[in-house]
Simulated scan of single mutants.
Amino acid sequence: MSALIELAGVRKTYRSGSVEFEALRGVDAAIETGEYVAVIGPSGSGKSTLMNLLGCLDVPTEGHYLLAGEDTAELDEAALAVIRNRRIGFVFQQFHLLPSMSAWRNVELPLVYAGIPRAERRERAVAALTRVGLAERVDHRPGELSGGQQQRVAVARALVTEPDLLLADEPTGNLDSTSTRDVLGLFDELHAAGRTIVLITHEPDVAARAQRNLVIDDGLITVDRPTAAAGAPA
Rank of each mutant, 00 (worst) to 15 (best):
A125C: 06
E70S: 09
S100R: 15
T49P: 00
A73V: 13
T222M: 05
D224A: 08
L129P: 07
V153A: 07
G26A: 11
D224G: 02
D205V: 13
P233E: 02
V132P: 01
V160A: 08
L220W: 10
I116T: 15
G46M: 09
G143T: 14
A38C: 11
P233Y: 02
G143W: 13
V37C: 12
A8E: 15
D205P: 00
A158Y: 11
Q149N: 04
F92W: 04
P117Y: 13
G46I: 00
P60H: 07
L7T: 02
G17L: 08
A232F: 12
I31E: 02
G173I: 05
A168K: 03
A228L: 13
L4H: 09
V112F: 09
N213A: 08
I83N: 01
L184I: 06
D139H: 14
A23H: 01
R152C: 08
A210M: 05
G46A: 07
L54R: 09
Q150S: 05
N106F: 06
R118I: 12
E22R: 11
I116V: 15
R141E: 14
G44S: 06
A73I: 12
G219V: 10
I31R: 02
E35S: 10
M1W: 09
A232D: 13
Y113N: 00
A68G: 15
V82I: 13
S177V: 10
L53P: 03
S100E: 14
R209A: 09
R137V: 01
G89P: 10
A3C: 06
T178A: 14
F95I: 10
A78N: 13
V223Y: 06
